[in-house]
Design a protein around this nucleic acid. Structure first.
Lengths: 166, 166
DNA sequence: TCGGTTGCGCAATATTATTTCAACATTGCG
DNA sequence: CGCAATGTTGAAATAATATTGCGCAACCGA
């Protein structure tokens, strides 16, 4: 467990900004029970220390025209670090790939991809992904529907754990 | 393709707020080339029409004490809609499960989970997930490292596509 | 051409962010 | 204990921003 330099107010700030990243500092301060100036200083500190990576609008992909989401399970025929890193670099350059995680077990990587339509994804799959160096095998699964997609972390779990360790 | 009611300025607003959700309206207006009041009206409109679902701080899970991320591939022994829906409801209630997507193919669901440590996840796996109704099979993969995790959508792909269809 | 509609920007006002500063904790140590 | 050193707080003042109201121009369909 990470040595926490965060007090309960900091954690509450993180939880509130995770739930509503555009909340005004005044509103935030009143919710966490301190005045605006120290609240703003804490937020700046959390940003600088890297607890807060950034703030993003959560945009409705389907409404915007990204009708297809796909998970791609990728196996490489080499697990040499240079080859793994090269594949990751390719993923970072592909706009349709939004996430790329290296996994343990049979599968080397899982990619979350978006696409305006199926044919665009098929082109990407056959012309880019399957042709990338050391790609041995790709299994793709279309997302039929999304039951849950909660950005962020369960702060209640964190608090429960900290209480237990106290 | 969705019939777009969005003009280029709207799309640029979405792209900017996706990149920085805490940008001031004044800054946003100057970037998209209109004055502040109409810019704010557009943002409100995009929120009300559901293009913007919300704004969230992106928080560093590892720093905060969530050291474990896991993808769980779940198969059920029934694909009746009632059973699928019941499983989705369970997922929504589990705080460690942050995402739950129904897939086509062999796997019925993929879950993205976070946990403070491995033992917490193991408990969740054996006592909750594996015991849930109609769960036939669960394959889990630990995330070793994350090469890319870009919240949101590739607006450049969207613009290219709109240009092609114009 | 003519209403009706839409979206713009200006200007005024209400809120909010940010800085400054003095007072109040908290910590470490003699 | 008690006293520096350090860090954190909140009130007040100021700068910046959000929000509203309104008049104007462009566009559109009869």
């Amino acid at each position: 467990m990470v040595a926490h330099k965060l007090d309960p107010i900091d954690r509450q700030i993180l939880a509130e900004l995770q739930a509503d990243g555009r909340m005004t500092n005044v509103e935030l301060a009143s919710r966490v029970g301190i005045s605006a100036p120290p609240c703003l200083r804490r937020v700046r500190g959390l940003e600088e220390q890297g607890y807060i990576r950034g703030y993003h609008a959560d945009i409705n992909a389907r409404e915007l025209g990204f009708e297809v989401q796909v998970f791609a399970m990728v196996r490489l025929n080499s697990q040499a670090e240079a080859d793994l890193a090269a594949f990751e670099a390719r993923c970072r350059a592909w706009p349709l790939v939004r996430e790329c995680h290296m996994l343990n077990g049979e599968i080397d990587f899982i990619l979350k991809c978006v696409s305006p339509d199926l044919s665009t994804f098929q082109s990407f799959l056959t012309e880019e992904l399957l042709r990338a160096d050391h790609v041995a095998n790709v299994k793709t699964s279309l997302v039929i529907r999304c039951a849950k997609d909660e950005p962020g972390l369960p702060f209640d779990v964190l608090e429960a754990r900290l209480a237990r360790n106290a």
